[in-house]
Design a protein around this nucleic acid. Structure first.
Lengths: 283, 283
DNA sequence: TCGACGGATTAACCTATGTTGTTCCCCCTT
DNA sequence: AAGGGGGAACAACATAGGTTAATCCGTCGA
């Protein structure tokens, strides 16, 4: 079902981890580093605190596309840090209607909710092939008990997620289809830039039009119409699950996008003239 | 602008605090008790921890309806615990469209976001006249630094709020107008029951149809149509800002409502035959 | 190689919801 | 008593977006 997604995911961006390699220590610390970087958006972590996170025992694990993460026995109760690929949280009504609640991109944690709430309200599924670092709740618990500032930083990260969910509510509740789509693209542009997954306004978007529909509260037919309209206006090029934004400034304007709600320290350029070279970090 | 709302709010439910009385110590501890009760949905707090919360220095304060809480100078940066009345969080687009993101009912905290995120993405406004306990960030900080389990409980409460926001996303994204309205009513029924604000399927709903519209992502005209339809089906009686649910079971069915996402320990009856007598707590 | 299948695209048609504008009513102010 | 304003209710009309269905295309299993 997701073979194409996998293909295109790998085809692009040389900086991706090769999917076939065995995980090794470098890789692992490389990835929990994503978490450190993210939390540093909130507070500067001490050397000690950074070490504590970097040395979290986190096994790496690969998952195929369109698969419920919770289905995987070895992930029971575990917290997954996305290294590579797209996942999403979603809820389904008894009659089958489904709403995607958030996208998980590299650097995001799959579910602190389970960790704190004790159970989960929403399923987490992969969209593309995904590789994750698996952190056990025990280790996370130990970490938070020992380092209150890390607890606070994790709390912060869940609040940022809520801020994004709220913006999606504004999006679906108030914006038209075209505005919604433009807004989602701007958001992805900014979030993926922050984790070095954007190259010259271009990023992998390994999802289906009907998944976009479930995200935006539209029908898949209308998602198609909307994408056509964006193409007609020469704002995007979207082929083989690769999205290129031809005019971010215009998209931003249409969407009335303002990135504050993402709570990132630095935001990539929306200037149509120059190339997108946001944060210099990266692997 | 909000005189009517204020009037009706006071007209009903003898158990309300008299609005004119000066706050006294009993009242204050009575109210922070709401917070203890709420957090106990998550973990049993020790005697010590309960005391710490109950003895938080919290001045009481009254606010008129339709007023931004942040506008009040004396509340700058403070955390407000709602004692009485309705408030909401909302965001507004540059062109004036507005989305209400959540309702704050007695027992809810106005904004842990400011406390953790350092700034706020969304405004908080009163809907009716409201009385709040004002907690300073310094005191809250001291509390969380001293009692990690309280920190965790507060974290939990923000995650519950996110769970509700997510359900609203499902609501707006997937449900029809009638379903949305029914769902909102079920949610309010359960949440208000948990804080003893419901009497025989009847509760104060001191908000305007156009505020309902901004909540549900509908136009106010269509909110009106939808309410008429619910009346026609004899599911609700709604007059003078008092909502009576004539058939919760049917509303629940229409809405495909399932209260798990609210994370409450006990949920009031949806049985049409019996009266609603949920948690026995109360003032 | 063939058939099946899922996704993208498009057309035709339909309806839920939005828009505009009017009336009524209540409450408040003067 | 008169006037003003906001909210509720309702009618008439407009449209964004949903539904159904057909075609096309690439991939994959048999």
């Amino acid at each position: 079902m997701a073979q194409r997604a996998a293909g295109t995911l790998l085809a692009n961006f040389g900086r991706s981890l090769a999917f076939e390699e065995k995980p090794n220590l470098d890789e692992v610390s490389c990835v929990t580093h994503l978490l450190v970087r993210k939390l540093q958006n909130f507070i500067a972590l001490s050397e000690d605190e950074q070490q504590a996170i970097l040395s979290l025992p986190a096994g790496s694990k690969r998952l195929r596309g369109r698969q419920m993460i919770a289905d995987d026995k070895s992930l029971k109760g575990a917290i997954c840090l996305i290294e590579e690929g797209f996942a999403c949280r979603h809820r389904t009504l008894p009659d089958g209607r489904r709403q995607i609640l958030s996208f998980l991109v590299p650097g995001d944690l799959s579910d602190l909710r389970v960790f704190i709430l004790g159970r989960t309200d929403s399923a987490v599924s992969t969209l593309s092939d995904v590789s994750v670092s698996v952190i056990t709740p025990e280790h996370l618990l130990a970490l938070t008990e020992r380092y209150p500032r890390i607890t606070r930083a994790l709390w912060w990260s869940t609040l940022v997620e809520e801020s994004i969910t709220q913006e999606w509510l504004v999006n679906i509740g108030q914006r038209s289809a075209l505005e919604r789509m433009a807004h989602l693209l701007c958001e992805l542009y900014v979030r993926l830039s922050a984790v070095a997954q954007v190259d010259v306004y271009t990023f992998d978007l390994p999802i289906t039009q009907s998944e976009l529909a479930d995200t935006l509260g539209l029908s898949s037919v209308h998602v198609n119409r909307t994408l056509q309209e964006l193409r007609r206006r020469e704002l995007i090029v979207f082929r083989d699950h690769v999205m290129e934004l031809k005019d971010v400034a215009e998209l931003k304007k249409i969407a009335m996008f303002s990135p504050g709600y993402l709570h990132l320290r630095s935001v990539p350029s929306f200037d149509p003239a120059q190339k997108a070279t946001p944060q210099t970090g990266g692997r």
